[in-house]
Design a protein around this nucleic acid. Sequence first.
DNA 1: TATGAATGAGGGTTCATTCAT
DNA 2: TATGAATGAACCCTCATTCAT
Lengths: 206, 206, 206, 206
Amino acid sequence: MQDKKLTRREREKLRHRRQMLVAAIELFSEKGYHNVSMHEIAKRAEFAIGTLYKFFKNKEDLYKALIMEKAAEYHRTLIRALSREGDVLTILKNYISAKAGVFADDVATLRLYFAETQGASFNIKAGLDQDIRKLYDELVEQLASTLEKGIRKNVLRDLNPYYTAVALEGITNAFLFCWLEDPERHSYEANAPVIRDIFLKGVVAE
Amino acid sequence: MQDKKLTRREREKLRHRRQMLVAAIELFSEKGYHNVSMHEIAKRAEFAIGTLYKFFKNKEDLYKALIMEKAAEYHRTLIRALSREGDVLTILKNYISAKAGVFADDVATLRLYFAETQGASFNIKAGLDQDIRKLYDELVEQLASTLEKGIRKNVLRDLNPYYTAVALEGITNAFLFCWLEDPERHSYEANAPVIRDIFLKGVVAE
Amino acid sequence: MQDKKLTRREREKLRHRRQMLVAAIELFSEKGYHNVSMHEIAKRAEFAIGTLYKFFKNKEDLYKALIMEKAAEYHRTLIRALSREGDVLTILKNYISAKAGVFADDVATLRLYFAETQGASFNIKAGLDQDIRKLYDELVEQLASTLEKGIRKNVLRDLNPYYTAVALEGITNAFLFCWLEDPERHSYEANAPVIRDIFLKGVVAE
Amino acid sequence: MQDKKLTRREREKLRHRRQMLVAAIELFSEKGYHNVSMHEIAKRAEFAIGTLYKFFKNKEDLYKALIMEKAAEYHRTLIRALSREGDVLTILKNYISAKAGVFADDVATLRLYFAETQGASFNIKAGLDQDIRKLYDELVEQLASTLEKGIRKNVLRDLNPYYTAVALEGITNAFLFCWLEDPERHSYEANAPVIRDIFLKGVVAE
DNA sequence: TATGAATGAGGGTTCATTCAT
DNA sequence: TATGAATGAACCCTCATTCAT
């Protein structure tokens, strides 16, 4: 966050690290973890292979760092959207919109995130699975507790909050996926109202 | 389909092929495409490596055959559910239930199917993506046209049929995924009513 | 031992294994474990690198197999020499001669054996050290017990049998080493009488 | 030798060099030449890698410097022991004792020295072999000439002086090796009388 | 036809060494 | 002079695929 107090050397190092991560995200997102070699990443980042290994212990480590940094940011944003003051319906609307924001200009990362969370990832890195799932579970719980609040206030119908959260996730991710597959045709932002329309109509009381 | 008219030789061959595919599904589903070797598959199927290659041109071919056979069956079942006579709401209810039926006792294949369709699969086999997506698109179109029928008959609200179909897919897949991750805790069948409740409430007119 | 009952395939496999070990011994002996690559060994043995790995799990495994096979043979021969019937002095003379026999036409292996046992080997393979040392310790114990017999019979002076065994090993190995360094100048066989002369004179009673 | 006339700068430099060599000896002795990296040595010596290379042209150079300095000291001590005035038997007794003195409190270096001289060292540095062997050969020659003197004076039996020297080296090294492997159990100093007993009994006249 | 030994390209990783600061 | 980031050759090993039997 605060690069200010770093020496020039340290700032350079951080910049280099970021360059490597950018190259890696691009390649992993284009071709998938197993179809990208460390040499390829190094080349794209314009560093020698040895330099790459100075920054990341090994390929799995690099991948994990990359995924976890992005996932943490994503979840932080969404948790924040759910934590804001206000009535439940507004919070849910904001939440639906916020989902687009995080990856707005970063389809590559979204692809990776989906590959990891939706696609029955196969333990690329032992532990990554667990770590990322923990984040995801936290998010769903938070969403469920928001929904529960709405139910208690009779704003929402009396549905199982957990499964309602799952349903909302399902819908929003489906639209994100549409956008991912063909960003020209399917704008997530433009479709957010559709999501709200269907989902909220399905869950609000009365 | 019709093993009857085949010679014993041909029947044997088909049986062997099936044995290989079963071994492959198990392994791919446990460990993912890139973490399974052809030798491993051959061994599990109790054939020599050379024999495996007599049946499948290469690893990608084997994988594609496997995925496409299952996907075709899956889509056939769902398309059939959508093609039945009857009122739209009943069709939709049946459709939601049918989704569970296909993979009822075959989590392994479901995992693979999800990895391939939800998880931003990375062109394991050039072309597989296209082929499977074509099936999927057909399904969504068919679903959309069913919904459209409902809209025309004023059974459903006037929503964009395509995106409504996307939303339904999103919800049902989310529940399938829950089941996949923890079959003990999250029975898809038991949750089908929740899906209907939320989704149909969201889309039916009045 | 008994190749007779093996199929042709199996005999071929054994022959190939032997060819690989021969290539490996030559190279390791010329340049040392760390200065020889698996590719080099494969090339010298006229096999592809992958074939080498079909026979040996990894480089350490190959090395260990090689060393242990030779060491076992060496120790078997010497133990046999010590186990023969007869008076102690004859046994010792035979033992001294036998030391040459094993490596008579295989300087390469002797070099490796010395590197491993005399040269403070640095655990090329965890466990190799232990395994080979166990063999060596057995040998020294056996030698010590032979000497002890001689002492009890008053054929030898009353010396500590273990350290006397160590001394004999030291002398014989020193001569083997001479031969190893310059086989033309220092024949072990020709020098065996010198060893007997000095050592036996030093230890016999009277 | 003479640090006195050196400037502070030069004295510092020498101290640094010594620190590096100490770190290197420890590591090489623990793990062997090939299992120690230059970075490791630099770190242990608490210098930057670049600084290490200011002092030693490369890894081989560092190793050679280290080995040769120790070897030179060792041989100097032994040659001195052989050069003293006095009767041959006393000289030999002193020589046997002196062998322990050099490495008395430096097992690390002894390990390296043995790895290099007994263990069929594999030309870690082209030339090191030759250089160290030259020292060794000088020592054996000197020892042989001492023995020859004894033979001429009829103090020793009429044996080949060179091979007798080889035998003495063999015995003493075997005991040093015992001590090296298990310093608790096998004290070289305590065993020196055994060596003298066996060896001298074997070589003295009458 | 079924077999499995053999192949070798290619990938992950290490580490001695250099050089700009 | 001391530093340590950067380099890239070279190594170990895997595995999809072929082909003689």
